[in-house]
């Protein structure tokens, strides 16, 4: 699955003034958790269930192409999706991206 030569996408986290590398094929959240050795150990996005169900890893996508998987409607409504709100564990970058970390949903 993952190997030393997998593509790396750069993800800029604007409200943290920081960025991390996300290995192709991983979600934003898991990619952040598994940054390659030598990168900062800082975690910008809180990690919850990693499956789209708990709503902890809410972000707003500002730019970049990606695919996404189903995420709990309780934590991201269709209207919010249209405004770029997503759960980082369900977003799979296809190129460099720019995101903003949001508060976890109060749902």
């Amino acid at each position: 699955m993952s190997n030393g030569s997998a593509a790396l996408h750069q993800v800029q986290v604007v409200n943290e003034q920081a960025s991390f590398s996300c290995q192709s094929g991983l979600s934003l959240l898991v990619g952040m958790e598994r940054q390659h050795v030598g990168a900062s150990m800082t975690r910008y996005i809180p990690a919850g269930c990693r499956g789209g169900g708990c709503g902890v890893c809410r972000v707003r996508i500002l730019s970049g192409t990606y695919t996404s998987k189903k995420m709990s409607i309780k934590h991201v409504t269709p209207e919010e999706r249209e405004q770029g709100v997503a759960l980082a564990c369900r977003v799979f970058p296809e190129g460099n991206m720019c995101i903003e970390v949001l508060e976890r949903s109060e749902a």
Binding site: G48, C49, R50, G51, G52, G53, C54, S72
Partner: peptide, 8 residues
């Protein structure tokens, strides 16, 4: 651990 939907 979590199931694929996030249920623990």
């Amino acid at each position: 651990f979590f199931d694929p939907s996030g249920n623990r």
